[in-house]
Design a protein around this nucleic acid. Structure first.
Length: 150
DNA sequence: GCCAACGTTGGC
DNA sequence: GCCAACGTTGGC
């Protein structure tokens, strides 16, 4: 069992959307490092749901990997902003997992709080200039973040 | 809306 | 295979 942080803009798709639909393909990732992380995910890995590009960036709850990585349908969809003409059905370029809703936290763990916590300085997403939308989280980091909602 | 940091693209 | 130009991310 491993832990991952996955970013999403709440205006587009936030934790409340996931709660409503229960399970969602995490499509639209167009970065090779992030894609590779998704392809390495295992069933029931825990997802820390991070809201970015919003008033209060931070982690708002948990999801889990409901389906292992498979070809991202939006790469073949000419009407999608994520369409990629280089991708072929028999040779897909982009993959996504399905993420299912686990819980929304009573209160978010804000980016400012994580930055202020010396035990979380190792988090990839807190490194200067880090923009990856999918990053691994260690068990120690996960446990530290969990304390905020204990 | 600004801008720094970074990944990707494409010409050579 | 290098690297400049470009586009995107995401906090502020």
């Amino acid at each position: 069992m491993r832990y991952w942080l996955m970013k999403s803009e709440p205006d587009t798709f936030g934790i409340d959307h996931l709660k409503r639909v229960k399970v969602e393909p995490w499509s639209g990732v167009r970065n090779f490092t992030a894609r590779n992380f998704m392809m390495s995910m295992e069933q029931s890995d825990i997802v820390l749901f991070y809201h970015s590009s919003c008033q209060e960036p931070g982690i708002y709850g948990l999801g889990k990997v409901a389906k292992l990585a498979y070809p991202d349908a939006t790469q073949f969809d000419t009407k999608s902003p994520y369409f990629d003409k280089r991708a072929k059905k028999d040779k897909p370029l982009w993959y996504n997992v399905d993420v299912s809703f686990v819980e929304k936290w009573a209160r978010p763990v804000l980016l400012t709080e994580m930055r202020a916590n010396p035990k979380l300085t190792t988090m990839i997403t807190l490194q200067p200039g880090s923009r990856l939308s999918v990053t691994p989280v260690t068990q120690k980091e996960f446990e530290e973040i969990s304390k905020y909602n204990a």
